[in-house]
Design a protein around this nucleic acid. Structure first.
Length: 435
DNA sequence: TCTGGGGTCCTAGGACCC
DNA sequence: TCTGGGGTCCTAGGACCC
């Protein structure tokens, strides 16, 4: 946005930020009301660490990212209810929340699975507080998910408002910041490390320079900020001063890199096992590419051992292959992922994780074909369509390329998973030798 | 025993070209 | 012997987000 546009936007810009409270934990509660008032945590893949906590779990002192084994005692004594992550459920609940929000303004930006920016620029003249409160109430009634809502003239200020809305008992989940005096008070009450865009590195640096709150930062010199925090810092500075620099991004641009990686449920040493896992990740990348109608030219595979086991020999390596023609076919990506993995695999290591990254992504209708190409791309594309159709209907892992394996020794551990309450998964026998 | 996964943007510096 | 300078592209690394 240029300066003229920006200053024009400033006349009326107004953003809402809706954030689902403790989202994954709240999703688990919607379908299991007995959990209300109880400490609930949701675990990362492999039930490794805590990635979501209800307020009661926070009150027990459980930290974000805490390894699960450290709180196993609490779980066993029933003080805490733990769930493996159930992304199908959370994705579906997220869709419902976003659908509900779009009833209130046509211009929404789905910022993450549990956050959404709203353009409220047309609503300056109405009673913003009632409107905001109505949004919160409606989402609660229609989806069962509690949300907090901050409203302010810029995205960064809406973030500030949202955080305070959640924290303050008085605000009770809704805070509208339009008056300069209120904005100033809010900035004063916001610690610098809680500002959107200030991570741990910058927070430490800024505190060293006596900047402890968002207000301190907002009165720093622009040149000083540019010098130490690049143009990104300057944008933040302006946003906190009320000058809108970040627009609402309603259309999600296609991703420039797509990565699928997982830690294995157990340590793997055999090439075949690592191959099966890696092939599955390649297929996931292919599916993600197809869903955004893209193809990729580069594929990178990496493997690593468990960096926490001090007694094991450590190994990390990666290999990138430039494919002759950009593709989004399971079969081709698995083929090249296999080649890449074989190039870096070394026997006698305990592998804990592998991953597939695809880059140099282009729209699928912009592919440059190779004269010497021997792949029947039409056939692949038709096959992938059929497979996607089956996957969408019957769920993942029902149809796959044989290289992905059926033994799945590497599969994720997920001992505490709730049912997929909202999406029916029909039963269908595994078809493994389709190709 | 057990420690997540998937993204974005910006900058500095080197290579290369004319 | 003298040893320019501007532009572009690429990459690695560092910061951030959820």
């Amino acid at each position: 946005m240029d300066t003229a546009q920006a200053s024009e936007a400033n006349m009326t810009s107004l953003f809402g930020l809706v954030d689902c409270n403790n989202f994954y934990a709240s999703c688990e509660r919607v379908f299991n009301p007995a959990l209300n008032g109880k400490a609930v945590v949701v675990l990362s893949n492999n039930d490794g660490c805590v990635i979501a906590r209800s307020n009661e779990a926070k009150a027990l002192g459980i930290q974000m990212g805490e390894p699960f084994f450290k709180i196993r005692n609490l779980v066993e004594h029933n003080y805490v209810h733990a769930f493996s992550s159930n992304y199908v459920l959370y994705g579906d609940m997220s869709d419902r929340v976003m659908q509900t929000l779009s009833q209130f303004t046509p211009h929404v930006e789905v910022y993450s699975i549990d956050e959404c920016f709203l353009d409220l620029g047309d609503f300056y003249d109405i009673d913003l507080f009632s409107y905001a409160w109505n949004i919160k109430k409606t989402v609660g009634q229609w989806t069962g998910i509690p949300v907090s809502l901050g409203v302010a003239p810029t995205k960064a200020l809406a973030k500030v408002a949202n955080k305070l809305a959640k924290k303050s008992k008085k605000a009770n989940g809704v805070l509208v910041l339009t008056e300069p005096y209120h904005i100033q008070k809010a900035l004063e009450a916001t610690k610098i490390e809680d500002v959107w865009g200030v991570g741990s590195q910058y927070a430490t640096f800024l505190k060293k320079h006596n900047i402890h709150t968002a207000l301190d930062f907002s009165i720093a010199s622009e040149n000083w900020v540019r010098k130490h925090m690049t143009v990104v810092g300057v944008r933040l500075l302006k946003e906190l001063r009320g000058e809108s620099c970040l627009e609402l991004e309603e259309i999600t641009p296609p991703k420039k890199g797509i990565c699928t990686s997982r830690s294995f449920g157990t340590k793997l040493t055999k090439l075949d096992d690592v191959l099966e896992a890696t092939a599955s990740y390649a297929a996931r990348c292919a599916k993600k590419l197809r869903s955004q109608k893209s193809c990729a030219r580069l594929i990178t595979v990496f493997v690593q051992t468990n960096r926490y086991s001090e007694n094991d020999r450590q190994y990390y390596n990666s290999k990138t292959i430039c494919m002759p023609v950009a593709t989004n076919s399971d079969i081709e990506l698995i083929h090249y992922a296999t080649l890449a993995l074989k190039a870096i695999y070394k026997p006698n290591y305990f592998y804990k994780k592998s991953g597939v990254i695809v880059t140099e992504i282009i729209p699928e209708n912009h592919i440059q074909y190779d004269l010497l190409d021997t792949v029947d791309r039409d056939k692949h594309s038709r096959l992938m369509k059929v497979m996607d159709g089956l996957t969408d209907r019957f769920g993942r892992s029902k149809v796959m390329v044989a290289a992905q394996g059926v033994n799945k020794d590497w599969i994720l551990r997920s001992d505490y998973k709730s049912p997929c309450y909202t999406t029916r998964i029909a039963e269908l026998p595994v078809v493994s030798n389709l190709i």
